[in-house]
Nucleic acid binder design. Sequence first.
DNA 1: TTTTTATTTCAATAATTACTGAAAGTTCGA
DNA 2: TCGAACTTTCAGTAATTATTGAAATAAAAA
Lengths: 167, 167
Amino acid sequence: MELQEAKEKFISTWGSLGTLWGINKAMAQIHALLWISPDPLSMEDIMEELHISRGNTSTNLRQLMDWGIVYKENKIGERKEYFASEKDVQELSKQIAKERSRREIEPTIKVLKEISRIKDDGSPQTKEFIQQTSALYELADTANTMLNKVVNQEHNWITKTLIKLIK
Amino acid sequence: MELQEAKEKFISTWGSLGTLWGINKAMAQIHALLWISPDPLSMEDIMEELHISRGNTSTNLRQLMDWGIVYKENKIGERKEYFASEKDVQELSKQIAKERSRREIEPTIKVLKEISRIKDDGSPQTKEFIQQTSALYELADTANTMLNKVVNQEHNWITKTLIKLIK
DNA sequence: TTTTTATTTCAATAATTACTGAAAGTTCGA
DNA sequence: TCGAACTTTCAGTAATTATTGAAATAAAAA
């Protein structure tokens, strides 16, 4: 397989995977492109490579920067802005875990906690409701706590130990 | 908060969370409804409660059954089919992890493995490509292995230990 | 076999989400 | 302060995805 072919395959795979997880195609593909690019790229470069419009590129670069996985870089003497992705895979997963926790998991936990505390009137409906929403709350809360510890690299040795043990 | 209000809040929250993760609203809401229902529900019951069409209900119940988190139940003497969700939170997360791994992570790993093995021609482009796709491959592979071990409950004590340690 | 009851399928349509391109905005050098 | 180079915004449109509802199918009862 040639580099060009492999590159296209990577970008397109990353794009569909993104879609599957609720991230739009352009955003995932821009990230893929920057991920494998040795040097920062300009907006023009990205538009050209992926055949997408200026507006689309601009919007999705902004989102990637909001996620903290793409940075602006300025070349001295150049007015144009260049973009580079976070290249460290640990840092990438850390950022993604962090953002997903903040945007999605935490708000859900809040709702689950609130609604699982309704007054128990003794009916089977209510009993089941409390039982099932509490179970979900505990699951989400534990998962989120673990995620954040790992993300904050507070217990790095545990992770390493676990990986060794579990393999 | 009254049960009815809490129920609606739960169903709607679960629906939006689903959407955010690439699962359609109806599917997530049907699951939410069954999750908190003490008894199995018929298609009519679901249609009525969620105000969705028969076709939509049928299609999404099928999907939930494909995911292995909803089951058909027959009441004796009744022609109608009833549906119940898996009620155990461990089993639920196990099923979801299993299906996501099978449908999404594994195919991605396969592609990453394949493309990260292109011949190194020494150019910076190629070097970066191999470096970055391999890193992603290793990350995905390790994560997937861990997920499956946990899912298969092969190392249950490790999980328990980890949770204790990490909290 | 025919009728009744229930479920599935799928073409048509609605709703949502993504993308374009040009106008407006910004920044910087002359 | 003006104008060139570049970026952002956003109304309009395209593409995708979800939903409906009715016809086809299936399965049990009469």
